[in-house]
Design a protein around this nucleic acid. Sequence first.
DNA 1: CGGACGCTTGAGGGTCTTCAAGGAATGTGG
DNA 2: CCACATTCCTTGAAGACCCTCAAGCGTCCG
Lengths: 234, 234
Amino acid sequence: MLPASASDSPTPYRRLPRNGDFSETLLVDAHMRHLEPHEHAFYEGDAQTHIYRIKSGMMRLYRLLADGRRQVIAFRLPGHLIGLGEHETQFCSAEALTDVVLQCVPLSIVYRRMQEEPRFGSELVRCLAVELAETRNQVAFLNRRSALEKLATFILGFLVWTGEDTKLELELHMGREDIADYLGLTVETVSRSFAKLKTQGIVSLPRAQTIVIHDIGRLIALAAGAFKEEESDS
Amino acid sequence: MLPASASDSPTPYRRLPRNGDFSETLLVDAHMRHLEPHEHAFYEGDAQTHIYRIKSGMMRLYRLLADGRRQVIAFRLPGHLIGLGEHETQFCSAEALTDVVLQCVPLSIVYRRMQEEPRFGSELVRCLAVELAETRNQVAFLNRRSALEKLATFILGFLVWTGEDTKLELELHMGREDIADYLGLTVETVSRSFAKLKTQGIVSLPRAQTIVIHDIGRLIALAAGAFKEEESDS
DNA sequence: CGGACGCTTGAGGGTCTTCAAGGAATGTGG
DNA sequence: CCACATTCCTTGAAGACCCTCAAGCGTCCG
C-alpha cells in the first residue's frame, strides 16, 4: 500500500521546472480538483472534456490490453499536462499514485484561449512536442534492451523526473508491478534486476519502494548499455 | 472533416485522409522540396528550422542508439507533419524511403500563422495529439508481444496507413531490416515470422517486399493476441 | 557470368517468462 | 499489543522465445 498521506515530506513531489511543463501562469483561474491515491482523473474511452495540469502529486497513464495485461504508458508529474487525446475520447486511463491536485480547464476554454492568447497555443504545442519526444524516446529504449538496462534507465529517469535536489534517494510510490508494466517485464524479472543492482553495490533498498543510489556512475553506464558482459562480477 | 484535396494524379502512396493529417489548405504557399530515396530531410541533432508536411511519398524516422543499433521510430506518410521536436534540435533523423515531396514551412512563419489564423494552431495541436496517441500505442504494442503478433500488427497498420482502396496487396518499399528495427526484432526473426504467416496461408509474398493478405481475419486475430497456442496448427 | 546484396533457413545458447513456493511487510480483529 | 490474514516482494527451477552465428539461396546489376 501507499502511505496514505505525504506527511513525512514537507513538499511532496516538488520538481524543478522542466521543459515539458506547461506554464502555470496561463492557468491561474483554473478549477482545482483533488484526487486520492488510486482515484482516476479519467478512464480510457471517456469523452474528452478537459485538459488537466498536474499541480502536485504523481499520476500514471495506462492502457488495458486485450489479453488483460496492463501497459503503463507514462508517469506524469507536476507541470505536466494530461487529457489531450486524439479523436474525442481518452486514449488511456489516468490514475493518481499519490494525493494529486489537478488544474482543470474545459476544452472549450482551451480553444478560446488559444485564439485570444497566442502564447497559450504555442505553449500547448511545445508541451505536446516534448511529450512526443519523450514517448518516442521510450519506444527507442524499451526495444531490445536487457532488463537490467531498462531498470537502470527507469531509475535514472525517475531521478530526473522527481529531481529532489541532488539527493540520491528516491521514493518510488509504486509497486513492482507498476514498474514491470512500464518496462514491459514481469514482476519477477524486476525483482531479480533489483537484486543484481543490490549485489553489485550500485543501489540499496532500505524498503521495497525506497531506492538509495550508491554508484550513479555505474548506473549510468548500465543504462547506456555498457558492462553487458560484466553483469555477474562482484 | 478534412478537405479531400485530390490534387494529385495517381501518384504513389496516395492515402485516404486520416485523422493525423495536417490540412493542406493551410500550407498552400509552402516551399516545395524533393527528396530521393535514402535522402534525408534532416538528421538527429540538426537545428530545427522548418516543419514539413509530406505531400507524397513515404519517410522513416529513426534514431541511432549508443550501441550502433538503429531504432525506427515511425513511418510517415502523405498528410503527416514532421520536424517538430523538443528543444531546438531534431530528435530523430528523417529519411525518404521513396521519392518524396515535402512542403516546407519555416518555424518563424509557423509561429506567426499560429497567431494570425486560429485554425492553424488548433490543427497543429490536433496533429501532435494524434501523433502522440499513435506513439503511445506503439509503446503499448511493442512491449510484451511475440514476434508474430508484432509482425501481424505491423502489416495491419501498414494496410491502414497506406490504405489503397480495399486491396489486400501492399508494397512495403522497405527491407527486412527496416521492419526489424521498427519492431525491435532481428532480420532473422522477421523472416521466420513471415514464413509462419505463409505456412498458415494467411499471406503470400510474390516478392520479398510485396505482401498479399489472404486471411485478414486471422491476421487481425493474431495481432490481437489470440491463437497464441495455435501458431503451429494446419 | 560472377559478385554483391538481401532474404531465408538451421543449430545453439542466452535471457526472460512461467509456475511455484517461501518470506517480509502491512492491516485487522481479538 | 500480538496473532492472523492479506498483499507484496523475493527466490528457485524449468521452459519458451528470440538472438547470435553460420550457411545456403535468390535476385539484381555490373
